[in-house]
Amino acid sequence: MASAAPTPSGTHPEARADARADVRLWHDIVRETLKANDVRLVTYVPDNVLKGLIASVHADPFFTAFACTREEEALGIVAGAWMGGMRGILLMQTSGFATLANVLASLPVAFQIPTLMMISERGTLGEFNIGQALVCRTMRPVLTSLAVEHHTLTRLDELEFTVDRSIKQAMATRAPVALILSPLLTGGKVFKA
């Protein structure tokens, strides 16, 4: 879970003690933007930072949400659902994204299927696990080498615009997109000594 340590944007969940009640949390904005774009299917491999978003899509009957055993499987389900007329997104962690290069290349990129991906970014800005720090460095190079559009989400005030426009572009251009949730937005996962 996120710590109460301050972040440059001061927008992570624990900062809301000081916030007004009408200020929306990042995962509320994501959930509402998915809904506004008719993204009904949410497949995920859980992550601590994604906990709030996962709980809120489970609580909303608009969504079909479930955990998958692997990210590859979850991506295949989203791809099949889109061809069947249902938009979907895959939620995962950095380390899970690292298992996807082959499937990304041979399914959504090759077949022009707009699979939406949201990745909770571990491995940077306070990481305590060296494996996470190392695998994180493969994420953007893989996305770049496959020419997959990707954005790093750091600010609450830009979140709705970036998520909304990214979904619309993915659907219009029939291309996958990756939205990376920075610890600057979410607070990340912090080592407790």
């Binding site: 499987e73 991506l75 295949g76 791809a79 099949g80 659902a81 979907g88 499937v103 399914l107």
Partner: peptide
């Protein structure tokens, strides 16, 4: 390619 994904893709279509 995407070896192993016939069942997940089929599940997506089925949903």
């Amino acid at each position: 390619g995407s070896m192993g994904l016939a069942c997940p893709i089929a599940l997506g279509v089925a949903l």
